[in-house]
Write a protein that binds this DNA or RNA. Sequence first.
DNA 1: GCAATAATTGAACGATCGTTCAATTTATTT
DNA 2: AAATAAATTGAACGATCGTTCAATTATTGC
Lengths: 226, 226
Amino acid sequence: MTKKQRNSKNIEHTNPNGTQSRTGQERKRALIEGTINSLAKRGVAGTTISTICEASGSSRGLITHYFGSKEALLAQALQHVYSTVSLSIYRQMDKPELTARERLTLFPEALFSRSVFTQKNRSVFLCLWHETRFNKIVRTTNQKLYRGYVLKMEELFFQAAIENTSNYAGLKEKSKAAAIGFISLSDGLWLGMSIHDRLIDNASAIGHCKKFIDSQFEILHKNTNG
Amino acid sequence: MTKKQRNSKNIEHTNPNGTQSRTGQERKRALIEGTINSLAKRGVAGTTISTICEASGSSRGLITHYFGSKEALLAQALQHVYSTVSLSIYRQMDKPELTARERLTLFPEALFSRSVFTQKNRSVFLCLWHETRFNKIVRTTNQKLYRGYVLKMEELFFQAAIENTSNYAGLKEKSKAAAIGFISLSDGLWLGMSIHDRLIDNASAIGHCKKFIDSQFEILHKNTNG
DNA sequence: GCAATAATTGAACGATCGTTCAATTTATTT
DNA sequence: AAATAAATTGAACGATCGTTCAATTATTGC
């Protein structure tokens, strides 16, 4: 006998609510969103199978059934929150009638906007950053997404730079540096505002970002040829 | 009978190693450092009473005996790592023969130095930031320490500014903004380097910080009266 | 209406969680 | 050397962890 024999006498499986079944897709989505809500409320250590099931209105067996393991569900949840936030930001700034420089300036406003910089997202990103260090599949996912983010900002700095200069010397390298510096500053502000109350307000965070963008364009437009 | 009656027949308590006792202070220190090492290796969710005891060479009962609870130990551990890092940084930059501006310039080098920017500290700070959001006593501790940090940097920017200007208008406010901006940038770089491999190297992180400091002094020295 | 399939349930499992505390060992005082 | 105090041990506890899977219910195709 390869499988373990279980005691199966007189156990009952009822569906007391008469809940209607959902499709697999809907259930997966519910579990992912329940995971995100649980992480936001209870953190990495406090998020368990039980809290996820409670938050998503599911029973305990469904996580293994649909995702194979809690860890795999976690990775998908964090990928989902990342995608959602990115989409919301890009939607706010990607207006084709604007110049690259104008779109770039919209970024900090989108990042710290009411729909992106929520209590929930602040909590979830702290969990994401933590898990990125201690959970391999989350790390791999995050690194891929982050590299795309850097590339996007780099391209934006580059496009904005060539709108206003004829000096192309080292513009690619300078754009990349500008992108990494800007992302670091905005992530640092996000972090600081996530773990402290009333130390930095939204407006001044946006101000810091915009000033930083301006300072980068002074560098981008400066002629640094031999 | 107020206390629970326990089954106490034939249990043995041996000290098989013949370990010598330590003082309470030494034991507390060992537990705190074991906690830090466990957090660095396994993260918040993977750090348990057992992993801490293993890492510190203690038995399971000692955590309750010396700290009352695991949560209290966690808070003390994070306070300890914060103090240690601060001390190491300040020791590297607080050379009285230097000007404030020179000391400020030493800060990013100290922050990303071999002794501060270690694998262990990167992991532990991700845990600290996470716990700051989900553990009340950690949050309180961290906010107090962070405010001291901001104040220290603010004072440094202010001192450096008055070394080179006679325009005192709004210098306090500008110094505070400079401090928060700088701390956000350096924390953001620290975060980015903690969760990504090979995207930012030490030298360019230090370079970003120094350029930011320079840009802040342009603002600090600019006359914004009227 | 009746199989066949998809979705869901939750008791049971072995492992481990944080905590308790009587028992024991080691160090200090008299 | 005896008595006292300080430090340490680890089995036991009740709770909960992530996972398993036989049983049950809901939906679909004919």
